[in-house]
Amino acid sequence: MTLTKTKLLPIAAQVLLFAFSILMLYPVLWMVFSSFKDNSEIFAKSFSLFPTEWKFGNYAAGWKGFGSYTFATFFKNSFIVVLIYTVGAVLSSAFIAYGFARMEFAGKKFWFACMIATLMLPQEVIMVPQYIVFQWLGWVNTFLPLTVPSFFGIPFFIFMLVQFMRSIPAELDNAAKIDGCNSFMIFYRIILPLTLPGLMTAAIFAFYWHWQDFIGPLLYLSRPDLYTVSLALKMFSDPDTSSNWGGMIAMSVLSLVPVIVIFFCFQRYIVEGITAGGVKG
């Protein structure tokens, strides 16, 4: 039964899936191919995907960056900021989620509700008061406002990891307790490994959100030698003069590469995490 059914359904679905995926990719393909087109051609002949003449100059021109700061600097900055942020976010959120998912304590509902509530706050509004706080701490024009807060947990990830942790049976905890484990050991040896897919997913999200974030860098980084890639990309298009679309698109394509690479690497863990896991299937 299993063999015949799984072969028939997928074929029709597979074709559909494939066609759909190409459609999904079209804008991205457009972007990649445009990075090899001459500036004048990019929008003039937007229908044609392939360049009439393959030019690699956009990459060199784009890489040059602005006013003596090349994209080497911008990429370095982005990496530093985003890596620290990701590590801080995932670890602290897992730690905190464990507290919400497994501990009972007075006021737990209140703090949980608090956390959900902060998710609904538009970042744009506490932007200015937050800036004032950071400025009082002396952190403006450093990477600190963009990295340190992540070590105190990110509500989105906490919420997500709580849900993941809740689907792990309590019997495992109890078994470990009987074996003499304390709460931290339960966290470390049982919960954390079983939440691995969640952790990896959180890591991927943390990475690319922060990679793309430009409001944070915009506010807190005034010196071009600290700029991240996301900020530098915005600077390519100026409404008052001609924009270097070719350069911008080329650099945008380049900025995609780290994110995709990270994704590929962590993708394996999502699958591995479960099959190597323990209890479930």
Binding site: M103, E104, F105, I126, P129, F151, F152
Partner: peptide
């Protein structure tokens, strides 16, 4: 258990205070 629970969520509470609650209070005032 109370102490333990708070131990685990303490980083969150500190961060909340410093980076969210205080700015939020300011924005409420504003």
């Amino acid at each position: 258990t109370n102490l333990l629970g708070y131990f685990y969520i303490s980083p969150y509470i500190i961060g909340l205070l410093a980076f969210t609650l205080i700015p939020m209070a300011i924005s409420l005032y504003l």
